[in-house]
């Protein structure tokens, strides 16, 4: 990943004027995507994600603001020049948008027709189908493929013109979890092998967690939070972001079921029910052992989840700490020094 910006949206605003009401789909959003990024944009349906990314290749013209892609001021281009630039920006879609009247090979060849020779096209199509693992289905029609296979065709087609940027518009939202995961792995490997920059919009934080290095959260047309994946996951600022993350980690369910456990119902006066969140190095420390050794505080782990995000461990524990009041407090201080984020589930303050 470099710091070279390939997409720069500045103060982009999109308003739709209907007969009875207007919709402010994108509300003065600025966004920078660097070369090699897999930039995730999450938000619920109607948050404006699709509209926002469509301004990158000007499928949607912004009402105001500037769009700079690969060092081109997109809004200043002529129609013909814009079409040329669009070939450098691939796009894949939720419903694949393949042409049912053409075979898989012809679908992939579609962007190349009239630009390259027949021979070159045949070679390129074979390469691309190999890349997405569909060589044996070259002569099938889209209707004969599964959803995951169709999206692979979509990806191969999007890559035909050797784009530098790939926009993924809810590309995995119509797929089952296992297929979703394999498509995301494919995108990740394309990012690593071809240096492809990917802008991925989704309502599934799960997808962001799996492959993105940066993330932005959108709500009501605005980006309410953004940053490195780990930073956002470990220290979310906005409630919506927290909700997304907790749903992904299934922490909301965990907390609910933990609260029903006898160990929690019969908490002693000095017992504290805490949620511990930690990233990276602190995950390596034997925290629980240390608590008992140094502070004689016992930690009863009711729920634990450790994920590897961007090759860095990211843990969430729900524990009950028991011991003398002063020692529990000292133990909590110790944890804080270790960069563990602590949240008291019952009192909501530490």
């Amino acid at each position: 990943m470099s710091d070279q910006a390939v997409v720069t949206l500045k103060d982009v605003d999109v308003e739709f004027h209907g007969k009875t009401r207007s919709v402010h789909a994108v509300d003065h959003v600025s966004l920078t995507v660097n070369r090699g990024d897999i930039y995730g944009i999450v938000g619920y349906s109607g948050a404006g994600k699709s509209t926002l990314v469509r301004t990158i290749n000007l499928l949607q013209r912004p009402t105001s603001g500037s769009v700079n892609v690969l060092d081109q001021d997109m809004l200043a281009l002529s129609a013909a020049h814009l079409r040329k630039e669009r070939k450098r920006i691939g796009m894949i879609f939720q419903h694949f948008n393949l042409m049912n009247s053409r075979t898989i090979a012809d679908n992939v060849a579609f962007p190349l027709k009239g630009i390259k020779s027949k021979q070159e096209i045949r070679k390129k199509v074979a390469e691309l189908l190999d890349l997405v693992g569909l060589t044996d289905r070259a002569n099938a029609y889209p209707a004969q493929l599964s959803g995951g296979q169709k999206q692979r065709v979509g990806i191969a087609r999007a890559l035909a013109s050797d784009p530098e940027i790939l926009i993924s518009d809810e590309a995995t939202s119509a797929l089952d979890p296992k297929t979703t995961s394999s498509i995301l792995d494919l995108l990740k490997s394309l990012n690593e092998r071809l240096g492809l920059t990917i802008v991925l919009i989704t309502h599934q934080m799960e997808a962001v967690k799996q492959i993105c290095n940066r993330v932005a959260v959108m709500d009501a047309g605005a980006i309410i939070e953004r940053g490195d994946l780990l930073q956002v996951f470990s220290d979310p600022q906005q409630q919506l972001t927290k909700d997304f993350i907790d749903t992904t980690l299934q922490l909301d369910q965990a907390i609910e079921s933990v609260l029903k456990q006898p160990a929690v119902k019969n908490l002693g006066p000095n017992d504290r029910l805490l949620r511990l969140t930690y990233v990276g190095a602190s995950a390596d420390q034997p925290l629980v052992a240390k608590l008992f050794e140094s502070y004689h505080v016992t930690a009863n782990i009711l729920f634990g989840d450790i994920q590897i995000l961007q090759d860095t461990p990211f843990g969430n524990l729900i524990v009950v700490l028991s011991g003398d009041q002063s020692e529990v407090d000292a133990g909590i201080q110790y944890l804080k020094q270790q960069d563990v984020k602590i949240e008291d589930i019952l009192k909501k303050e530490v």
Binding site: R83, E85, R86, H95, L98, R157, I167
Partner: peptide, 29 residues
């Protein structure tokens, strides 16, 4: 499917190309 038209637009196909290669082809039957 309007999605297919959009995909062709995103690929940088001209309006005439879209008529010829997408509308007439996909709408043939």
């Amino acid at each position: 499917d309007p999605g297919v038209i959009e995909a062709a637009e995103a690929m940088g196909v001209s309006p005439l190309g879209i008529v010829w290669r997408v509308y007439l082809r996909e709408g043939l039957s």
